[in-house]
Amino acid sequence: MLVDSHCHLDFPDFSEELEAVVARAGDAGIGLMLTIGTKLEKFPGVLAIAERFPNVYCTVGVHPHEAEHDWGYAAETLVDLAKHPKVVGIGETGLDYFYDHSPRDLQIKSFRAHIEAARQTGLPLIVHTRDADDDTIRVMEEEKRAGDYSAVIHCFTGTQRLADASLAMGFFISLSGILTFKNAVDLRAVVKSVPTDRLLVETDSPYLAPIPHRGKRNEPAFTAHTAKFAADLKEEDQARFASATTENFFRLFNKIPRSALAQAA
């Protein structure tokens, strides 16, 4: 079975048919889903979904877009919220210089606070980065020297340099439906260089639906399309690729009991 390592089930796009969305994911072979926190004020809704479905877990964090508007907390706030058994990661956090919805200095402060929370909890960090390779690498490397932590670069669309730096720090790279887009030639070249034992798959739904659903609302069931495309790209058996990425997920998100997947099946 596959795992959708990054989705947003609390978004209004799913509100009217959440039960059906989760059911379709199971029918498509998606055993577990990780729904991601983006604002602290919306965290109770994220957690409620994880509590509602046995095959859904969640994270707590503040998206870089929200750093200016959801600031004023310390790492301890994230640490406290992460004590719940269904909270298995910190983020998403990081740097987004494409939109610059929040000042860059506040994005960096928020990023560092999340890393400290990941360090204190031992939970993995979920990193969003766009048009910010230099600062993302710099902050991650500085914080890595200050104390160990684990991480995944979610919805990877970066350069070979970002991939190499992330892998050198022991981090994972997660692939979204963007990999299937016709114009993602450079991304596919980078992904070919990433060892399979460091890859995850995700949807980032409701966004970025993979081919053949591009232009439609994305949902966790479509993880299967991205996984198939990635396996073919890397010339690997699809079943073995699915097994490997699921194993990678449990290695990273090790708060989740492996029995959770058996229960989902």
Rank of each mutant, 00 (worst) to 15 (best):
L2D: 13
L2M: 14
L2V: 11
L2F: 15
L2K: 13
L2T: 11
V3E: 07
V3N: 02
V3D: 04
V3M: 12
V3L: 06
D4R: 11
S5L: 11
S5V: 11
S5G: 13
H6A: 13
C7L: 08
C7A: 15
H8D: 11
H8Y: 10
L9S: 08
D10P: 12
D10Y: 12
F11Y: 12
F11L: 15
P12M: 13
P12K: 15
P12H: 14
D13C: 12
D13Q: 15
D13N: 13
F14A: 06
E16L: 11
E16H: 14
E17F: 13
E17T: 10
E17M: 11
L18F: 04
L18H: 01
L18M: 07
L18R: 12
L18I: 01
L18K: 09
E19N: 13
E19W: 09
E19R: 14
E19M: 12
A20C: 05
V21W: 14
V22T: 03
V22K: 00
V22F: 00
A23K: 09
R24K: 08
R24I: 01
R24H: 01
A25L: 11
G26C: 11
G26I: 06
G26Y: 03
D27S: 15
A28T: 01
G29E: 09
G29R: 08
I30M: 10
I30F: 04
I30K: 01
I30P: 01
I30L: 13
L32P: 00
L32N: 04
L32K: 13
L32W: 04
M33Q: 05
M33R: 02
M33C: 04
L34V: 09
L34C: 10
L34M: 10
T35Y: 00
T35A: 00
I36R: 03
I36L: 06
I36K: 01
G37A: 00
G37D: 04
G37S: 04
G37W: 01
G37C: 02
T38E: 10
L40H: 02
L40P: 10
L40N: 01
L40Y: 03
E41N: 13
E41R: 14
E41P: 02
K42I: 12
K42A: 15
K42Q: 14
F43I: 11
F43G: 03
F43A: 07
F43K: 02
F43C: 03
F43V: 10
P44V: 01
P44S: 03
G45D: 09
G45Y: 02
V46D: 04
L47D: 07
A48C: 05
A48D: 08
A48M: 06
I49V: 07
I49Y: 06
A50H: 09
E51V: 10
R52M: 08
R52I: 05
R52V: 08
R52W: 07
R52E: 08
F53H: 03
F53Y: 12
F53E: 05
F53C: 07
P54G: 11
P54K: 14
N55K: 13
N55G: 09
N55I: 08
N55V: 08
V56C: 07
V56S: 07
V56Y: 08
V56N: 02
Y57K: 06
Y57Q: 07
C58K: 02
C58Y: 11
T59Y: 03
T59K: 04
T59V: 09
T59G: 05
T59S: 14
V60C: 00
V60W: 00
G61R: 05
G61E: 05
G61C: 05
V62T: 04
V62Q: 04
V62A: 07
H63A: 06
H63Q: 12
H63C: 07
H63K: 10
